[in-house]
Structure formats: structure tokens, C-alpha cells
Design a protein around this nucleic acid. Structure first.
Length: 264
DNA sequence: CATCGTCGGCAGCAGGTAAC
DNA sequence: GTTACCTGCTGCCGACGATG
């Protein structure tokens, strides 16, 4: 089953796609696209060339270049699309060809961006700007280091307690549409539930339950945009046990009803 | 001193139902 | 599709103690 998580900010987009996926040839006229498989491989078509990208083999697609790709089950990919003028400096010396990208560093980068995105106040322009600036700055660092991001944040994440948190974030991301409870997540983190709640909030800025809810709402928004499923169906698809609960949470995080959001 | 586990209280969430 | 109301439950927080 195809799953997708996306982080949409004004000048940068991050997408994480798992399992079967196909898209049609297209070009981004004012954006660079960085494509990095993190597991399995994908068949990438760039201009008139076809190539197989394996995990850890990144590709920087320059603005206006046509491209498309497809991937099969058990594959995973992270795509970053950023405004031309913001990362031109970092991309200028990179030829549109394969270059090594560290899969773990890319996944870690995505998870940090996702944590900040989920935790930020979406109504606050300053918070959005801050999240975007951090995402762009880390992306530039990673490009400058040849795809191997080694910022303080990464080093910190590699230490044991943060390693646990990385495991939990990955677990939540894979299971947020299912029933999740604190004890389950604490077990993944190898911590007591009480300590887990504290350390989770310290790491992400929100409580575990709020984090799961925001992920569900982001996925619901995506489904509202791209599918014709009813609001009731989507509420069950993303893990809510009743439409009424879904409406309440959606209103709280988005300020509009699901139906209004679809019509925007 | 830092880290982690435990406990009690409470705000807010989950779930069900009804109505529009 | 959406909102309101109610009840029971649980996630979260603050305080405190144990441990190394």
C-alpha cells in the first residue's frame, strides 16, 4: 500500500513516499528537486535518459528539466523541492547526475523537518518562516557536504536518547493511522511511559498524542486534496474512530471544516 | 547532580448519540 | 456533512523519591 507524507512550506516541499508509486513526466520551472531513495530503488527518467537510483544514490534535478520516476513495493524515497534562488548557490556546482547521498542522513533530515513542521503553529507566519529557514539551512549544509549531513543536530540525534526518539518518530510515522497508545510508544523508546512523555515533548515540542493527531490531520488534508473519498471515509482512513472526533480535531488544527478545506 | 521511575489529580479526549 | 451534548477514560503535568 502506497503511503506518503509531505511537508509543504512556502519555498520548500519535502515528500516521503513508500511502496508503489508512479508519476508522469513534468518539470519544475523555478525549483530544484533532490531525489534520494532511502530503501530499495526507483526507476528515474531524466530528460531522455533512464536510470536506476538505488538507496543512497541521490539526484539533483535542475529547474525546467523534465523528469519522472516510478517505484515498486518495499521501496522508499525522499524528495525535496526548493525554490531555485534559495539553493542555487549550493546546487550551482552540482551536475545533474547521480551523487552519493547518505540514506540515514536524508531520513534523519526529513524526520527533523517533520518534527518541526508538526510542532509549529501553522497560523503563525514567524513559526512557518523559522521552520522553513531551518529546513533550507540544513539542506544547504547537506548539499555542501556531498549529501552527508553532519550538523550538531545530527550528531546529537545519533546519541542514545535521541536515537530512541528517532526510532519512535519512525514508528509513529509508520503506524499513525492505527491505534497507538503511550505504553506502546514508550516500549519502542525503551523508556517508562512517564519518562517517555517528558523526553518526547522535550525533543519535539509537543506531546506524543498531539504529534500523532497532527500527522493524521496532515494525511487527511492530503487525501482531501487528491481523492474523492467522503470525509467519513477519510476520518477512518487516517485512524480516527469516529467522524465527529475527526471534525473536532481538524477544526482545531486547521481552523476550517474538512469540507471547507477541500473546497479551498 | 543528572537521569529515570512513580503517583495523584485534572483537563481534555474518545466514543456514542441525536439533531439539523 | 456538521455540530452539540454527555459520560467515562486517559494522557499529561507537577511533585517527589530512588539510583548511580
Amino acid at each position: 500500500m502506497q503511503t506518503q507524507m509531505q511537508i509543504l512550506l512556502p519555498d520548500i516541499e519535502l515528500h516521503k513516499i513508500d511502496n508503489e508509486f508512479v508519476n508522469i513526466p513534468h518539470a519544475h520551472h523555478h525549483e530544484y528537486q533532490i531525489t534520494v531513495p532511502i530503501k530499495g530503488s526507483c526507476e528515474f527518467h531524466y530528460e531522455n535518459r533512464g536510470m536506476e537510483l538505488r538507496a543512497g544514490e541521490g539526484l539533483v534535478v535542475h529547474p525546467a528539466d523534465r523528469h519522472c520516476f516510478q517505484m515498486s513495493n518495499h521501496s522508499g524515497i525522499i524528495i525535496v523541492i526548493a525554490k531555485d534562488e534559495l539553493i542555487r548557490q549550493a546546487c550551482r556546482e552540482i551536475e545533474p547526475s547521480q551523487r552519493p547521498f547518505e540514506s540515514a542522513a536524508m531520513l534523519s533530515y526529513f524526520q527533523r523537518c517533520a518534527s518541526r513542521f508538526i510542532a509549529m503553529d501553522h497560523m503563525d507566519p514567524l513559526a512557518v518562516e523559522e521552520t522553513q529557514s531551518l529546513a533550507l539551512a540544513e539542506l544547504e549544509d547537506m548539499l555542501a557536504a556531498g549529501g552527508q549531513l553532519r550538523t550538531e543536530a545530527t550528531k546529537k540525534a545519533e546519541r542514545s536518547s535521541d536515537w530512541s526518539m528517532t526510532q519512535v518518530l519512525a514508528y509513529i510515522e509508520a503506524h499513525y493511522t492505527e491505534q497507538l497508545d503511550i505504553d506502546q510508544l514508550a516500549a519502542v523508546a525503551l523508556q517508562s511511559r512517564y519518562h517517555f512523555i517528558r523526553s518526547f515533548k522535550l525533543a519535539t515540542g509537543v506531546t506524543p498524542y498531539q504529534y500523532v493527531l497532527r500527522l493524521r490531520i496532515e494525511e487527511a488534508k492530503r487525501q482531501l486534496r487528491i481523492s474523492a473519498h467522503t470525509v467519513t471515509d477519510i476520518s477512518f482512513n487516517v485512524g480516527f474512530s469516529s467522524p465527529s472526533q475527526f471534525y473536532r480535531v481538524f477544526m482545531k488544527f486547521s481552523g476550517v471544516t474538512p469540507e471547507s478545506y477541500r473546497g479551498m
